[in-house]
Design a protein around this nucleic acid. Structure first.
Ligand SMILES: [Zn+2]
Length: 269
DNA sequence: ATGAACACCTGACTGC
DNA sequence: TGCAGTCAGGTGTTCA
C-alpha cells in the first residue's frame, strides 16, 4: 500500500526520533523479503541524525556514516506499540522508547548502507515526481516509443518513482487520460496534464496523511489513519457514479499487467 | 531490450 | 463451519 504519500507520511513521523540513541535491535526472524544484514547489530550505540526518502524507500541516517534502508512492501508499517505475531523488528532506544516494524506479508525490506547511498536497490530508480528536476516535457520524453499502457508506464519506477496502483488511477482520472492509452500515444499536452495532476494528487495525499484502505493496514507512526480515500475519484470505486457532474457513467475496473485499474470511459480518453 | 507473467506471503472476504 | 477461490499498497526475477 505504501506509495509515495504513505512513505513520506511515515518519514515525517520518524523525524520525531531524531536525536535518540539506539540501545539494541531485536530481530524476530532472519529475513523479510531478503535476509537481514549480518551486521544489523551495528546500529546499536548510534543516534538517529535524520530521515530521508528516495522513491518508496526510507533512509534512516545514523551516526558514523551508516544508513538503515527500509521499504514497507505492501503491508509494512512502523509504530511505537507491539502489535503481535507480525512484529519482525524492534528497535529499543536508550531513553526507554522503542520503534516496532510490523509487516504481515513480509514484502518489506531492511538493509544497511555503509557510506553514501550506493545500494543496488537505489541505483536504477527514475526521477522524483516532486523534485524540480522533473517536468511534463521530461515525462513526455520518457513515454516516447513505449509500447505499454500509460497506466503501466506510471507504475514503472524507471520512468518516475513513487506512483503505485492507487495514485496511478487517481492521476489518470484527473488528467482525463484513459489508462489503456499507449504511452507512446500520449500527446505533449496530455503529458503536461498528467504531470500537473501528479503534483496535485501526491501533495494533497501527503497533506491527508496518505491512504488507509478498508483493511486498515496503513497507519501513520502515531496510529492515525490516512484520509486521502475521502478524495478518491476512481480507485476502488467500481460501479459507483463518476464524480463529474456532467457524466452519467459509472467507474469501471479492468486488469492491466495483473493489477486492477479504475477509470471512467467517458471522462478519460 | 521490452513487456508480460510469475514469485514472494498472509489475511480478508465471497460463495457454495 | 469449513473450504476453495479471489483479491490486496510492490518489485525482483524469469520467460517469451
Ligand atoms: Zn465520467
Amino acid at each position: 500500500m505504501p506509495e509515495l504519500p504513505e512513505v513520506e507520511t511515515v518519514r515525517r513521523g520518524l523525524l520525531g526520533l531524531i536525536g535518540k540513541e539506539i540501545l539494541a535491535v531485536e530481530l524476530n526472524r532472519t529475513n523479510l523479503r531478503f535476509p537481514f544484514p549480518e551486521d544489523m547489530d551495528s546500529i546499536a550505540g548510534r543516534k538517529i541524525l535524520s530521515v530521508d526518502r528516495r522513491a518508496k524507500y526510507l533512509l534512516i541516517r545514523l551516526e558514523n556514516d551508516l544508513t538503515l534502508l527500509s521499504h514497507l512492501g505492501m503491508t509494512g508499517r512502523f509504530g511505537y506499540d507491539l502489535e503481535g505475531k507480525h512484529d519482525h523488528v524492534i528497535i529499543d532506544f536508550v531513553d526507554g522508547s522503542r520503534l516496532v516494524y510490523t509487516d504481515p506479508r513480509r514484502f518489506g525490506i531492511m538493509d544497511l548502507i555503509h557510506g553514501g547511498d550506493d545500494h543496488k536497490l537505489l541505483n536504477h530508480l527514475g526521477p522524483e515526481p516532486l523534485d524540480s528536476g522533473w517536468s511534463g516535457s521530461q515525462l513526455y520524453q520518457s513515454l516516447r516509443g513505449r509500447n505499454v499502457s500509460i497506466k503501466s508506464a506510471l507504475l514503472d519506477q524507471k520512468i518516475v518513482v513513487g506512483i503505485g496502483n492507487i495514485y496511478a488511477s487517481e492521476i489518470l482520472f484527473r488528467a482525463g487520460v484513459s489508462p489503456k492509452r499507449l504511452a507512446k500515444n500520449v500527446s505533449k499536452k496530455k503529458a503536461e496534464e498528467i504531470y500537473n495532476q501528479t503534483q496535485i494528487v501526491l501533495l494533497t495525499a501527503i497533506e491527508a496523511g496518505g491512504s488507509t484502505l478498508r483493511d486498515g493496514q496503513f497507519k501513520q507512526i502515531d496510529g492515525n489513519l490516512g484520509y486521502f480515500p475521502h478524495e478518491f475519484a476512481a480507485y476502488d470505486r467500481e460501479g459507483e457514479n463518476c464524480v463529474s457532474v456532467e457524466c452519467a457513467n459509472t467507474i469501471k475496473r479492468v486488469v492491466q499487467s495483473g493489477r486492477s485499474t479504475f477509470f471512467c470511459s467517458h471522462c478519460q480518453r
